[in-house]
Lab assay of single mutants.
Amino acid sequence: MDTYKLILNGKTLKGETTTEAVDAATAEKVFKHYANEHGVHGHWTYDPETKTFTSTE
């Protein structure tokens, strides 16, 4: 398992979190669920070199 990072740049919520996942697709599902639960619906990007997802509203 690898550690993946999420950076949230929402209108009402900003911050970072991490998750352990078997691959990027699994981490993306976890992070999108997390963002949706916190009302963040933004544009998603992923940097495979740093294993970092960013959601920007």
Rank of each mutant, 00 (worst) to 15 (best):
M1T: 11
T56E: 10
T45G: 07
H41S: 11
L8R: 00
F31N: 00
Y46M: 01
T12C: 15
E16Q: 11
G42V: 05
G42R: 02
G39N: 09
Y46F: 07
T45Q: 09
T26Y: 07
A25P: 08
G39C: 07
F31Y: 01
T50V: 05
A35D: 01
T19N: 03
L6A: 03
G10E: 04
H43N: 13
H41V: 13
S55F: 15
E16T: 12
T3K: 09
A25Q: 11
A21P: 01
T19H: 06
A21D: 01
F31P: 00
K51G: 02
M1C: 13
T52W: 02
T18L: 08
A25L: 10
G15K: 14
K32L: 11
H43K: 13
E20D: 09
L13E: 08
A35H: 02
V22H: 11
G15F: 15
K14S: 11
K14Y: 13
D47C: 09
L8H: 02
N36K: 14
G39Y: 04
K29Q: 11
A27D: 01
D23T: 04
M1K: 13
A24L: 08
K11S: 11
N36L: 14
S55G: 06
G42E: 03
K32T: 06
N36M: 14
L8V: 08
I7H: 04
H41C: 12
A35K: 01
Y46A: 00
Y34S: 01
Y34L: 07
T56N: 10
A21V: 03
T54W: 10
S55H: 08
A24E: 07
T56V: 09
K51Y: 06
A35N: 02
L6K: 02
F53E: 00
A21C: 07
E57V: 06
G10R: 02
L6G: 03
L6H: 02
E16Y: 14
N9L: 13
Y4C: 05
K11N: 11
P48G: 06
D2H: 15
T19P: 00
V30T: 11
L13W: 15
Y46W: 02
E20L: 15
A27E: 00
A21W: 02
D47K: 04
T50R: 06
T17W: 15
T26I: 06
D47H: 06
F31G: 00
E16I: 13
L13D: 05
V30G: 03
M1A: 08
E57R: 02
G10Y: 12
T12P: 03
E37A: 13
T17C: 15
K14F: 10
K51N: 05
Y46H: 00
T56D: 12
A27S: 01
K32C: 10
T18P: 01
T12H: 13
E37H: 09
T56P: 03
Y4A: 02
S55N: 14
N36E: 15
F53W: 04
D2K: 14
H38P: 01
G42A: 05
I7C: 07
L8N: 00
V22Q: 12
E49M: 11
G39W: 06
H33V: 13
K29V: 11
H43C: 15
H41I: 13
D2V: 11
Y34C: 06
A27Y: 00
T19A: 07
G42S: 05
T17K: 08
T18V: 08
V22E: 12
A24Y: 13
T12Q: 10
Y46E: 00
W44I: 07
N9W: 12
K51V: 01
T54F: 11
D23I: 02
H33P: 02
K11I: 15
K11V: 14
Y4E: 03
H38C: 11
W44Y: 03
Y46L: 01
T50Y: 06
T45A: 10
D23A: 03
N36I: 14
E57M: 05
V30Y: 15
T3Q: 09
W44P: 00
D2T: 14
Y4M: 03
V22R: 13
G10S: 08
Y4V: 03
G42L: 15
H41A: 12
H38L: 15
N9S: 08
F31V: 00
G10P: 03
A35E: 06
D23L: 02
K5H: 12
A25R: 10
T45K: 08
E49D: 13
Y34G: 01
T3Y: 07
L6Q: 02
V30Q: 09
D23K: 02
T50L: 06
K11Y: 10
E57C: 05
S55K: 03
Y46S: 00
D23F: 02
K32Y: 06
K51P: 00
A24S: 07
T18A: 06
L13N: 07
T19S: 04
D2S: 14
T3M: 09
H43F: 14
D47I: 05
K5M: 06
T12E: 10
T19G: 02
E37L: 14
F53A: 00
Y46N: 00
K5G: 03
E28N: 04
T19R: 04
Y46R: 00
T45W: 06
A35Y: 03
T18R: 07
K11G: 09
T56W: 10
N9K: 10
A27G: 01
E37Q: 12
T56Y: 08
L8W: 09
L6I: 03
A27T: 00
Y46C: 00
A24C: 14
P48L: 06
V40N: 04
V22A: 13
H41F: 15
E49K: 10
V30F: 15
E57T: 05
K5A: 05
E16K: 07
T19I: 15
H41P: 05
T19D: 01
K14R: 12
T18G: 02
N9Y: 12
T18E: 08
K14W: 11
F31E: 01
H38I: 13
V40E: 04
G39F: 06
T54P: 00
E28Q: 08
T12K: 11
T18N: 05
T19M: 12
G15I: 15
K32A: 06
T50I: 06
E28F: 15
E20W: 11
Y46I: 00
Y46T: 00
D23E: 03
E28W: 15
N36W: 14
K32V: 07
A21I: 02
E28D: 03
Y4I: 04
E37T: 13
T56K: 06
K29M: 12
T56I: 09
E20A: 09
N9F: 11
I7P: 00
L8P: 00
F53K: 00
T54K: 05
T26P: 00
F53G: 00
E28P: 00
F53V: 01
D23N: 09
G15H: 14
D47G: 01
T26W: 07
G39R: 05
E16F: 14
K51C: 02
A25C: 13
S55L: 15
T26V: 07
E49P: 08
D47N: 10
E49N: 11
H38A: 12
G42N: 03
S55Y: 10
T52M: 03
Y4P: 04
N9G: 04
E16R: 06
H41Y: 15
H38N: 11
W44M: 10
Y4T: 03
G15Q: 13
N36A: 15
Y34R: 02
H41L: 11
N9T: 07
E16S: 10
P48D: 09
K11M: 13
T12F: 14
A35V: 08
E20T: 12
E57Y: 06
A27C: 01
T19Y: 12
T17V: 15
T17S: 08
T54D: 03
H33F: 11
L6W: 04
T56Q: 08
N9I: 15
G15A: 14
T3L: 12
D47L: 04
T50P: 00
G42H: 03
D2R: 10
T18C: 11
V30W: 15
M1R: 10
T45E: 12
E16H: 09
E20F: 12
K29N: 09
K29D: 08
P48A: 12
G15E: 13
A21Y: 01
D2A: 12
H41M: 12
I7R: 04
L6S: 02
D47R: 03
M1P: 08
T26G: 08
A25M: 11
I7E: 04
L13Y: 15
T17Y: 15
T52A: 04
